[in-house]
Design a protein around this nucleic acid. Structure first.
Lengths: 241, 241
DNA sequence: ACAAAAGTGTTTGTGTTACACCCATGC
DNA sequence: GCATGGGTGTAACACAAACACTTTTGT
């Protein structure tokens, strides 16, 4: 959340983004901590301009947070319970120092805006974690990557949103060949396998995994990668086009 | 669309329902024709009350149109292009007879409401076509079932919405065993096969289809159905519980 | 008896799983 | 040479497609 013109936005409709990265054999999610007295985490989100499509809005929000454009991004579900009101944030804002808020560009209008009930469109994004430079917005205390197995306590239904996003990722990773979005340009077969194992939280047989992936015909074999280790050097691969 | 209190609704957010039925070896969609000078069809839709979850809103809209409760219903996608403004309806309403509109309970406030840009949540429903008694709303000229292969020309992106709903149905029919929602309580194996053939628009081998379905273990075999035809009488089946 | 359609069984092919083996690399 | 990890091959198995045959029904 950052200062915005509430007049130019669609009312009571928001976008929440689950930004997935992969690092150290673990799937991670980019989550800002809000700058409030209590510890409080919320998914990166935003609102939709009147003259802007929802996909464009999601891309804009992602660019603000990651600095990246052209990243894989897809809506996966709408969260629209009647109880989707951010009571925690509301309370904090009501008791907060008005001067401090004003300094951040947050006015009474914004506080009232944020106190409404919101229907939120869930998007998930896949990024190369090394290419992201997380950007704090004005009301964030910090922005960090949290492993999917060790998430902070989040506001409202944001934990459910992440769970649903992970379900969707699991369903799509294979059928739409999304893996390369989470990896560097080149990678070894073992790295790809470990990514799959992190997503599905289950081990795969090494030889059969290699066969299955290569039979898809979407990988291009490059030169070998000499690591200096006392074993056969693995090939590097790249996704075609 | 019927008279409503715009104050109690979420602004610029709508629900559009693709109601699927099955009859005469064809998948059909329930579509109202609007009572306007030009021929004009639009998906059954509605808006979300302030104190109402989106799933509940979709159920309410469906009950208004079909008279049915407890029907299979699921959101499948959000349509949110910046250009989603119902220009056709807008023009019609502007030139329409104000007295006639007032008689239907549609005021200037409603006309302005409908002229906004809308983000729409797509839901699809599966119903037993014989149990539905289509209900006209105040601005409908008629409500009819149209075969998926022969749809009328629809407003805005409603044709795209139906296509996406069909894609989702195809993806879900098998994995979630949704077939029984479209059929009467009891049915023959041939009828079930013809349903699948209608959904996927492709023929299946009779014996293999039977084996595949029975191996799922979700059907209960009942007595035979004597049709009077000069051939072996087929068994009737029912979905377990 | 015969046609029509339902039910069942058998073979074939394909793809996945499990097991085994060989190869390159640095110490 | 040898331990380590990477690459490849093959047998066993399960599942799906294609083919064939038998059974029931009303004329």
């Amino acid at each position: 959340v950052k200062p915005f013109d509430t007049q130019q936005m669609i009312q009571q409709l928001s976008i929440d983004c689950v930004i997935f990265g992969y690092q150290s054999q673990a799937i991670k999610v980019l989550i800002p901590r809000l700058d409030l007295p209590d510890e409080c985490w919320a998914l990166p989100g935003g609102f939709i301009h009147q003259n802007e499509g929802i996909d464009h809005a999601a891309q804009r929000i992602l660019k603000e947070r990651t600095g990246l454009t052209d990243i894989y991004l897809e809506q996966f579900r709408v969260f629209g319970g009647a109880d989707r009101i951010n009571l925690a944030l509301q309370d904090h804002l009501k008791t907060a120092d008005r001067d401090k808020l004003a300094h951040l560009g947050i006015s009474e209008v914004h506080v009232q805006w944020l106190a409404q009930r919101f229907v939120s469109i869930g998007y998930y994004a896949l990024v190369d974690i090394d290419k992201v430079k997380p950007q704090k917005s004005t009301i964030d205390a910090s922005v960090d990557w949290y492993p999917i197995k060790n998430l902070p306590t989040m506001i409202m239904d944001h934990h459910t949103i992440i769970e649903e996003a992970l379900k969707t990722l699991r369903a799509h990773l294979d059928e739409r060949l999304l893996g390369f979005n989470l990896l560097p340009d080149t990678f070894t077969m073992k790295e790809l396998q470990e990514l799959y194992e992190a997503v599905y939280d289950t081990p795969f047989a090494r030889n059969n995994f290699q066969k299955k992936i290569l039979d898809l015909g979407v990988l291009e074999r490059l030169e070998k990668k000499f690591t200096g280790a006392a074993n056969k050097a693995p090939y590097l691969y790249r996704f075609k086009q």
